[in-house]
Design a protein around this nucleic acid. Structure first.
Length: 816
RNA sequence: ACCCGGAUGGCGAAACCGGUAGACGCAAGAGACUUAAAAUCUCUCGUCCGUAAGGGCAUGCGGGUUCAAGUCCCGCUCCGGGUACCA
């Protein structure tokens, strides 16, 4: 350090003051349009997307900032690599979150939301993100939801939007229908109230028709494996057979889905879901009363009791069916452990080889037959107190001609045999169901449909969009189960667009997930008023090159976005069917080992930390506290280390000299650091990239010389994605007049990475006994000779070595 | 129950393909500077035995493979997330 406090020269070190330089650069970026992408003329477009927040009144959460910063670093890094990076951001402002908050505060969402958005905007601008704010979106603005409604109409046009009465999850507290995804363990995801069943006419999208395609494309998408796995599980493909059981004395057959057609010889009864349409027809007079009673309890019961009680219940219908394999008459039962929503709503029960059927059969004293034997079982080995479900080892028994076959082979042969006899076919079944998009709420885009007595269901003509959400003071839902809009005749009474006769609007609004299922298509064209997305812009920027977000959206948002994109492709609006080429799931920030929540009082207000430490230090700390894709534990003390690094960088840049030549050892370390930080930044290993920069900073300072300009300038560039304000300021200090982000990424010189010597580890019997500094290309013989010349090593080697393992550049292991 | 993750010093964490376990940072201790404190700088810092040299033990637990295991295999325990009677 050369702070000469004397008469001739006084250099007063300027301390690093984020409070001064951060606003300075934010203003300058805005003035110069630094963060704006060349939307029409970009040569190497790179679309960097982060999940947009819903603007809560609490303001920006650290979790948001953690997510955004990680994406921002990736975007800035790509820009430095020479890409034209477009990084937009907006607000997912519609939806139950916002509406519930307004209800709680006694405010109106139409007034509250803009305030929350403004607050978020203020916080986000502080965060120093490289966002092109010209393209900002707000899903609750008519300019946006006009096109959300347009998206609905495209689906409707293709027959992919339909209406049906469905049992829905009804939250008596939120007074609304919930998607299955919003129900957690039978309770409302938002308020924890026990969910009930109700029947309502709902709009659905045919997501299930895309199940196979949604599944197959996962094979080639560059996504985080965890996210792909979550989607695969959600789509839930299973192969099996659909089989028919003829009902004795009736024309009907009961169709069942099974993944174990090989066990049909052990099917000793059938079970229908209580809601199954055949129940009434099959039930015998003697059983009618018992069945009616059971059915009533089951269907009226709320979902939590029905699904959480493991105890099996059911009732006999009095009817029997023929097992097509054995010819036996088997009883038909109804039980609520069979779900109407999955498969055919009916099963063949094989108690010997299915745990649930086993339990049920025991309870109701139904016959249990073994048709699969394990390697240690004989055909008549009793099953004991559990079903035998091992399909990898089992072989068929008591199954006529199929005895002895392994399960997988038996599945094929039995299915073929049954198909020949006209009893069924092989089918693939999916767990994925259609997406219910109706919400009986206020704060969402009205579904653009009109009901006319003459013309039926009429889509609102595109020219009449948007169907504006009116300002109504009584937006609160009530338990009538209808939308608040249905109380406003002046709004819903409209002439039919086709015949002009009096008609009425659909009063439901659509699910928030529809808003976010296409927003990435809108960003590049956010200012276009005539189209949802401009064809040229879309061709240039989409699909998204990099999408980073939380894995909590693995199955809903990401799946719906993929679905909508496929539909748009099929409709000819775009020429790709997968919206996100690369997706990475980031981790979650916890505090003191627990998720942050208001009730635990461990919530972090980013403003406080940005005030105290500066935005750059806060950003960098968030990235340093753990692996980005795993998250980490937030600790207040941890920030000081990152801030110290920035202080040191600042001080070194102040001290820098252009005279003389840089230190050769420092330069070697520098080039290794450039390579490491580049690789780690690309891989989202931000914590180790930062560690490498710190290490290099230490090297520079420990050389105890005035740092040379060439030693520090590249470090400033490496730091830029992480601490953009500081980097800009240092870059300017070092004599530049344009943005550091237009200065490129430093290249490393491979020649400087070549090592001449290496530390060779010497082990005796696998134990570390010494280290030798040897030429990089040392031979085994030479290394051995050097090792034996080292007394500390030689004393462990008694007699002739039995074996010597030599790994060049790494180690020598002498086995005695 | 099932499907994913994860478990490494006092703490957050590193460790490419099996090859020096603990990089980087926090906290702590000692020292320098200071009237003093803060800040800054330097050093120490897994653990046990030993004055030291040196040696033993250590990556949730128990086995195994290997010259060599945090890393691979088998069997568990605990924690986090997701799904949940999916036939």
């Amino acid at each position: 350090m050369r702070y000469l406090v004397g008469m001739s020269e006084t250099v007063i070190p300027t301390p690093y003051e984020p409070a001064t330089i951060e606003p300075k650069w934010q203003t300058r970026w805005a003035e110069r349009g630094t963060n704006e992408a060349r939307l029409d003329t970009a040569e190497r477009p790179f679309y960097s997307l982060m999940m947009f927040p819903y603007p809560s009144a609490e303001g920006l959460h650290v979790g948001n900032l953690f997510a955004f910063t990680g994406s921002d670093i990736s975007a800035r890094f790509h820009r430095l690599l020479g890409y034209d990076v477009f990084q937009p951001l907006g607000y997912d402002a519609f939806g139950i979150h916002s509406e519930n908050y307004a209800l709680k505060m006694g405010a109106h969402p139409m007034e509250l939301t803009p305030k929350n958005v403004a607050n978020f905007q203020r916080q986000l601008e502080r965060a120093g993100l490289m966002v092109d704010w010209r393209q900002k979106l707000d899903t609750s603005r008519p300019e946006y939801y006009k096109w959300t409604q347009w998206v609905f109409l495209q689906l409707h046009k293709q027959g992919l939007a339909y209406k049906k009465a469905a049992a829905v999850n009804w939250c008596p507290s939120c007074k609304t229908v919930l998607a299955n995804e919003q129900v957690e363990g039978g309770t409302c995801e938002r308020c924890g109230t026990t969910v009930e069943q109700r029947f309502l006419e709902q709009w659905f999208f045919r997501t299930s028709a895309f199940a196979e395609r949604l599944l197959n494309n996962l094979d080639w998408l560059d996504w985080s494996p965890v996210t792909k796995q979550a989607q695969r599980n959600w789509i839930g493909r299973s192969e099996g057979a659909q089989l028919s059981f003829r009902v004795s004395g009736h024309d009907e057959a009961v169709r069942v889905f099974t993944t174990r057609p090989d066990t049909i010889f052990g099917a000793t009864y059938l079970v229908l879901a209580p809601e199954h349409p055949l129940v009434a027809a099959l039930t015998t007079d003697a059983q009618r009363e018992a069945v009616r009673e059971y059915r009533d309890t089951a269907t009226k019961q709320d979902l939590i009791t029905r699904k959480s009680s493991k105890e099996k219940t059911g009732v006999f219908t009095g009817a029997t069916a023929t097992n097509p394999a054995t010819g036996a008459q088997i009883p038909i039962w109804i039980a609520d452990y069979v779900l109407m929503e999955y498969g055919t709503g009916a099963i063949m029960a094989v108690p010997g080889h299915d745990e649930r059927d086993f339990e049920f059969a025991q309870r109701f004293k139904l016959p249990i037959v073994r048709v699969v034997a394990g390697p240690d079982d004989a055909a008549d080995t009793p099953l004991g107190d559990a079903a035998y479900t091992d399909d990898a080892q089992g072989r068929l028994v008591n199954s006529g001609a199929f005895d002895g076959l392994a399960v997988s082979e038996a599945k094929r042969q039995v299915t073929a045999w049954l198909a020949e006899g006209g009893h069924g076919t092989a089918v693939t079944n999916f767990r994925l169901y259609d997406w219910c998009i109706s919400r009986q709420r206020y704060w969402g885009p009205p579904i653009p449909i009109i009901y006319c007595d003459e013309c039926g269901t009429v889509p609102v003509p595109e020219s009449q969009l948007p169907v504006k959400l009116p300002f109504i003071p009584d937006f609160k839902p009530d338990d009538s189960g209808i939308s608040p809009l249905a109380r406003h005749e002046e709004w819903y009474r409209v002439p039919c667009p086709t015949c002009g006769k009096p008609a009425r609007r659909e009063t439901d609004v659509s699910d928030t997930f529809l808003d976010s299922a296409w927003y990435f298509l809108r960003y590049p064209s956010a200012q276009h008023t005539e189209v949802a997305f401009d064809p040229a812009r879309t061709r240039k920027w989409l699909p998204v090159d990099s999408y980073i977000g939380g894995n909590e959206h693995a199955v809903l948002h990401l799946l719906y976005s993929r679905f909508v994109t496929m539909v748009m492709k099929d409709a000819g609006h775009i020429d790709f069917e997968e919206p996100f080429t690369r997706f990475r799931a980031h981790g979650m920030i916890i505090r003191d080992g627990a998720k942050m929540s208001k009730s635990k009082g461990n919530v972090i207000n980013p403003d406080v930390y940005m005030d105290e430490w500066g935005t750059d230090a806060f950003r960098m700390y968030l990235m340093f506290l753990g692996p980005y894709e795993e998250g980490g534990d937030f600790r207040d003390q941890g920030i000081s280390g990152v801030r110290r690094f920035l202080d040191r960088l600042w001080a070194s840049v102040r001290d820098v000299s252009s005279e003389g030549t840089p230190d050769a050892d420092v330069m070697r370390k520098l080039h290794r650091t450039i390579r490491k930080v580049g690789e780690d930044s690309a891989a989202l290993s931000y914590n180790t990239a930062i560690a490498a920069m710190m290490e290099y900073m230490n090297t520079v300072r420990r050389s105890e010389r005035t740092p040379h300009r060439d030693e520090l300038l590249p470090l400033v560039q490496l730091t830029a994605p992480y601490a953009p304000h500081l980097a800009e300021e240092c870059w300017e200090q070092l004599g530049h007049h344009t943005s550091v982000f237009d200065g490129g990424w430093p290249a490393f010189d491979p020649a400087l990475l070549v090592e001449e010597t290496v530390d060779l580890v010497v082990q005796v019997n696998g134990k570390l006994r010494g280290k030798l500094t040897v030429p990089i290309d040392v031979t085994q013989e030479a290394a051995m000779a050097l090792a034996m010349a080292d007394a500390g090593i030689a004393k462990h080697v008694t007699g002739e070595p039995k074996k010597v393992i030599f790994v060049p550049k790494r180690l020598l292991n002498i086995v005695v």
